[in-house]
Design a protein around this nucleic acid. Structure first.
Lengths: 160, 160
DNA sequence: AAAAATGCGTCAATAAAGCTGACATATTTT
DNA sequence: AAAATATGTCAGCTTTATTGACGCATTTTT
């Protein structure tokens, strides 16, 4: 039976040595992003649970508040999900009175999306704990540092 | 019918004005985190698709590689999911030869988890595009800036 | 004016990934 | 001997997403 150190070591032998990659890959920051995001979304998740809503509802409410009048197509593009995934979530938000649809003034096929006051309140309530968490993470940071972090996050996006 | 500007405005009237919150909440960075993470996970997602694996598999392979010998309980704590959610994913990874289990030397109830060489290769293949993306986001940044970003991400975590 | 494309809603079927709760087994601790 | 622990497993369920197809109203193109 080949040992791990053999050149013919079976690919199925367990490896006990820590991962070596000659420092090519920074696993630490990959993990940091994972943990940061996991906890970042845990705050609104708890609030949403009470109303029977989920993360998807949060995203929709957030973006409609940020850009009132955006269309369904805009939202699909932003969230990178399919029309059918959005449909259920959007319907629930409309039925619950958080979002309203208005036919587009120029192109009447469009359904422009607007928050109601309740929708705006919800978006703020969800953003509040996230904002507090961000402030805590920036504690003692200079304005330049804040800008650096924002630049980094912008750089993480796929440019379209 | 009450107008939007009325003090009695119905909570269900659509609001066309942009969200005003006296600058209390920084929506920009909330969005930046959303977009950054959305694109950050899109790279491995594409690779995983080909093997019929999902994000959950990625996380397991990643952490087992990072800390060979971790137990099932460790993994549950790290991922903050339930035993049953992990079970299926872990079983698939073991059956596919990416991860092996070994009874703990001291406590033989434990199942210590180790990557195989194939598991290590997979973890690296998944981390590689993420690493490239991070490097791109850090392009031209100083070592101090990198540290600032890491400190920020650490600060975003819930301290346990 | 007719044809094609677009924006949206909806239906049906399906899958991935998580959940709860209960219970079994082996092992270690008390 | 009894209790606690680490793990595995079973059954059933929910949420969130998927693909593909189709219909309707409207706008754009021919």
């Amino acid at each position: 039976m080949p040992r791990q150190t053999s050149q013919n070591a079976a690919k199925t032998e367990p490896l006990a040595t820590p991962m070596r990659n000659a420092g090519i890959i920074d696993f630490e920051i990959i993990e940091l992003l994972f943990f940061a995001y996991r906890d970042f979304v845990s705050d609104p998740d708890q609030i949403l649970d009470k109303s029977g809503f989920g993360r998807a509802h949060h995203r929709v409410v957030h973006f409609v508040n940020r850009e009132p009048g955006m269309t369904v197509a805009d939202l699909l593009e932003t969230l990178k999900i399919t029309k059918q995934s959005l449909a259920r979530v959007l319907k629930q938000l409309i039925d619950s009175g958080y979002i309203r649809q208005v036919a587009g003034p120029e192109d009447r096929r469009q359904r422009k999306l607007y928050p109601t006051q309740a929708g705006r309140d919800l978006a703020l309530a969800l953003a509040e704990p996230q904002s507090r968490r961000i402030e805590r993470a920036f504690e003692g940071a200079s304005e330049a540092t804040r800008e650096s972090v924002k630049r980094f996050l912008r750089g993480m996006q796929t440019e379209k």
